[in-house]
């Protein structure tokens, strides 16, 4: 589906159906009765602009732009409380994460801070098999541009030094898994399987 840059079009009447068919667990969204158990159970619900319940309603209402721009997609910590407690058996966590994946694929995520962070995190994992605090933060800060990166780094220098002093931040070469080549091979295989499943029409 093409991305519409026309934000004046607030309701995309085909959006709900598209989500039902293309987002993992989306086919269960029609079961939602808007009880609020998911948003009320969310440990960081107060940090979300909409929360899962409202997000589901927005999907059904066809508010495509607002859904993909929502921070709810990115603040989810995958604790699965919503999924466990949903009285209608909706895999809420999967839906939220599925929408986040679609937001990346459709180019909505580049402007979202949490998405930038997730991207930096993934970069560290794929390159080293580990997350290195310094590299993840640096990658994240500099994703805002060179000058912004320097500024953000300086702003947080005190915290970083404090962490080093307390032994909470590693100094020296980045941690690595011993078999980095093997990790690469695993990730390549996983990507290959994912692509094959997508082409085979399996749930994305």
């Amino acid at each position: 589906m093409a991305v519409s840059s026309d934000t004046s079009q607030k309701y995309d009447l085909g959006f709900a159906r598209w989500v039902y068919q293309n987002v993992k667990g989306g086919d269960k969204l029609s079961m939602c009765m808007q009880c609020g158990a998911c948003s009320g159970s969310c440990p960081i619900g107060t940090e979300m602009d909409h929360g899962p319940r409202k997000l589901i309603m927005m999907v059904r209402a066809g508010m495509k732009e607002a859904v993909f721009q929502s921070n709810t997609l990115w603040n989810c910590t995958s604790c699965y409380r919503c999924t466990v407690r949903c009285p209608r058996g909706i895999p809420v966590t999967h839906v939220v994460q599925g929408l986040a994946a679609k937001a990346v694929a459709l180019g909505y995520a580049s402007e979202v801070d949490t998405a930038r962070f997730a991207h930096s995190f993934w970069w560290s994992v794929t390159h080293f098999g580990r997350t290195d605090e310094r590299l993840v933060t640096a990658k994240y800060y500099f994703s805002f541009g060179f000058i912004a990166g320097i500024k953000k780094s300086l702003d947080n220098l005190k915290i970083a030094l404090g962490m080093v002093m307390k032994g909470r931040m590693h100094v020296g070469l980045p941690h690595k898994v011993s078999d980095n080549k093997g990790l690469r091979a695993i990730l390549e295989k996983a990507t290959e399987i994912e692509m094959r499943d997508k082409q085979g029409g399996a749930e994305s």
């Binding site: 009880c35 609020g36 158990a37 009320g40 159970s41 969310c42 929360g51 319940r53 407690r85 009285p87």
Partner: peptide, 23 residues
């Protein structure tokens, strides 16, 4: 209040606290 509460927590003195989202 139109809301299915997520959970009920217990304060240290035993007072129940109802937590959820007002829809």
């Amino acid at each position: 209040i139109k809301s299915k509460p997520g959970h009920v927590e217990i304060e240290e003195d035993g007072t129940p606290v109802v937590c959820g989202e007002d829809t």
